[in-house]
Design a protein around this nucleic acid. Sequence first.
DNA 1: CCACTCCGGACCTCTGAAAT
DNA 2: ATTTCAGAGGTCCGGAGTGG
Length: 270
Amino acid sequence: MPRLPDHVSFTMIPNFIFDEQLESLSGGELKILLMIYRKTVGFDKKSDKISYSQLVEFTGLSKSTISQGIKGLVHKKLVKIDRTENTNRYTYCLPDINISGSSKIEPEVVQKSNTQPVRKSNTQKKVPKETEKNTTSSSNLSEDLWEVINYWNTIFPNTLNPDDPSKVKDIEEALDQFTVKQIKQAIFMRSKCSYYRDNKPQLLNKPSAFFPYPETIANDLERKSRDMYDFQEMINKVTSSNLTTDDFEQLADSEIWVLKKQRHRMLIKT
DNA sequence: CCACTCCGGACCTCTGAAAT
DNA sequence: ATTTCAGAGGTCCGGAGTGG
């Protein structure tokens, strides 16, 4: 099967969008839908918070068109919106595939907050933080917590127990100061940098030596091996040498670019 | 001419942070 | 404690462009 070259990053869009929905989507709706897939599937997430200003910036549509487009996508059961937070959280909807292979769109799961009539006092009522934060059972941890826990256990297999309330509390406090993306990047850098291997191998995969210490997270976030660059450094490298952006590979869900191995060896040789 | 899509602007409500 | 302000989500309306 023909596939894109390895250096081209892409986001998977389900075929039913092209086969069954394209005709009925307006240009604005399609742009918004693509943006939602990019921000969710493109970052290996089921949902993501996207502000109107981001949608306006990335799609080039006006705010009123964004509003109408979102309404249309919800009506067509292509996205779901969670309005319980300050910024809308969008989730892409997939059709139900039956045995015969034809697909039908699942009925929209209407959230409780959507079913209530809008009143002056609660049009954008926010869920109190306590109900979200005081979660000690692994069965009802927030999505962000799960993302961090799963990522840690992927990098350092089975070293973080989601049923341990003290560990969960540490992660919650870390999430108060850092984004999920930053924490994941810090974990990744921690796993790659030589500092821990050379100096503190006993601390490397210990969650208790990471999550409770914001300064450690911040330090790990800054750790980079020699072939890693942030965006500006990558651009500087491209403009000051015979490299192109194609010679760099973006690490999944991070702002870090790595010089591809082949080019890296050549560069070291010369 | 009409339907549709989209835009720009005005306006509203609400939240949270900062200033007073 | 109260006020102010920015940012966010949302609606409405008039108008422009386009295609049938």
